[in-house]
């Protein structure tokens, strides 16, 4: 554990809590992509199957259980409890265009051709693009609530901080995971446009609204 990794994890945790608070306080899931949340649920479920096979630390186990639990609760809020506020018309990204290529790639490019490892690889690749339905939804509606922007900023920062963690770990421990690093770079690049809008608008007190 190093400071970048810890900050990354805390940023990820903050993102999830911000999203839950937004939904709970406003009793609304408006502007939130249910499809991205389903993809994140798939990511966590696939990656954390190792809860049953290997123990890393109490911290690691608690975070995994929290991430899995909260993402399914988020899906419950979107598709059941606050269903009336869910904007399904604008959540029209075709997720099969992500799942199929990512699944194929996980089969072809992995560290070891073993079931659990392929599933782990799938989760790494899928996470890198799981935010696309959410970004697509914002580009379709042309706006994002400020609280949704905070959520996305925290979520994007998490993987950017992991990149710093991997640079640190490479020099400090000789640790280098090419699959995680490449996927992490892709994931972070996808947020760059949003980061720019966040810094130039949200930090100056304006909400994100895109020209029609």
């Amino acid at each position: 554990m190093n400071i970048f990794r810890l900050c990354g994890d805390m940023s990820h945790l903050a993102a999830i809590i911000i999203l839950l608070l937004k939904m709970w306080k406003t009793r609304s899931v408006a502007g939130i992509s249910g499809k991205s949340q389903i993809l994140f649920a798939t990511v966590f479920t696939a990656r954390y199957l190792d809860l049953f096979t290997s123990f890393i630390s109490i911290y690691n186990t608690c975070m995994k259980v929290f991430f899995i639990g909260t993402v399914y609760f988020t899906i419950y809020l979107i598709y059941m409890k606050f269903k009336a506020t869910y904007d399904s018309n604008h959540d029209s990204f075709r997720v099969e265009f992500l799942i199929v290529p990512v699944g194929g790639l996980a089969f072809l490019v992995n560290h070891e051709f073993a079931p659990l490892e392929i599933i782990w690889t799938f989760s790494i690749y899928l996470e890198s693009v799981a935010i696309l339905p959410q970004l697509f939804m914002i580009s379709k509606t042309g706006e994002a609530e400020t609280i949704t922007s905070h959520y996305l900023f925290a979520l994007g920062s998490y993987r950017a901080l992991y990149l710093c963690n991997w640079i640190y770990r490479y020099y400090a421990e000789g640790f280098f995971d090419l699959i995680a690093v490449v996927a992490g770079v892709v994931q972070t690049i996808l947020y760059c446009d949003f980061f720019y809008l966040y810094i130039t608008k949200v930090m100056k007190g304006k909400k994100i609204s895109l020209p029609a």
Partner: peptide, 10 residues
Amino acid sequence: GGTAQPHDEL
């Protein structure tokens, strides 16, 4: 580079 299971990150 990199190794298979177990993975120690989240």
